[in-house]
Amino acid sequence: MKVLMVFDQIQAGMGGKERAGAELPLGGKRGPIGAVPMLEPHLKKLDEEVIACLYCGDGYFKEHEEEVVKKMAAMAKKLRPDVVICGPAYNYKGFARMCALVAYEINKKTDIPAIAAMSEENVDTISKYKNSVNIVKMPKKGGTGLNESLYKICLLAKKVADKEDITELKKEICY
C-alpha cells in the first residue's frame, strides 16, 4: 500500500523553528525522509510503504496558505498514493493547521483519502476541522504514548485506504 506523507520543515528533517527553517518553500522527495523511520516499524507491520514526502516550512505556509494547499492536493493526485498522512503535527500550531487544511483539500478534491494527526493543544484547528477531517489523537512533543499513537495513525491510514468501516475506530482514536 502506497503512502504519501505531508511534513513541515522539522518533521522533514530540513530545518528547525528558526526563521531560515520556517521559510522552507514547498517541496518534495521520493522515498522516506525525516520522521519516516520513526513510523517505519508500524508501517511495515501494516504492509504500508512511504512512496514520497511533501514538505513545507510552517512560516512559508502561513504566507502562501491557499497556494500550498492546492499544490499539495494536485501533487497528491499526480503521485496517486493509496492514502495521505498529514503529520504527525504534535503541538506545532502552524503545522497542525497545514495538516488539517491539506487533508481537507485532498479529501474534497480527489478520491484519495487523507488523514491528519495532532495533539490536543491545537484547540482551534481541531474544533474547526474535526467534523470534516479524520484527526488522530496524539501526544504533544515529549508527551507520553507517542509510539501507540503512531501505530493508530498507520492503522487508520490502512483502513481508510481499504475503504473499511471506520466508525468504531474513529470514535476511539480521533477527535
Binding site: G28, K29, R30, L54, A74, M75, K77, K78, T110
Partner: peptide
C-alpha cells in the same frame, strides 16, 4: 535531481 519532486509543472487546475 532524481529524488526531488518538482512542483514547477503542477497546475492547480488539475484538481
Amino acid at each position: 535531481e532524481s529524488e526531488d519532486i518538482s512542483f514547477d509543472d503542477i497546475s492547480i487546475d488539475d484538481l
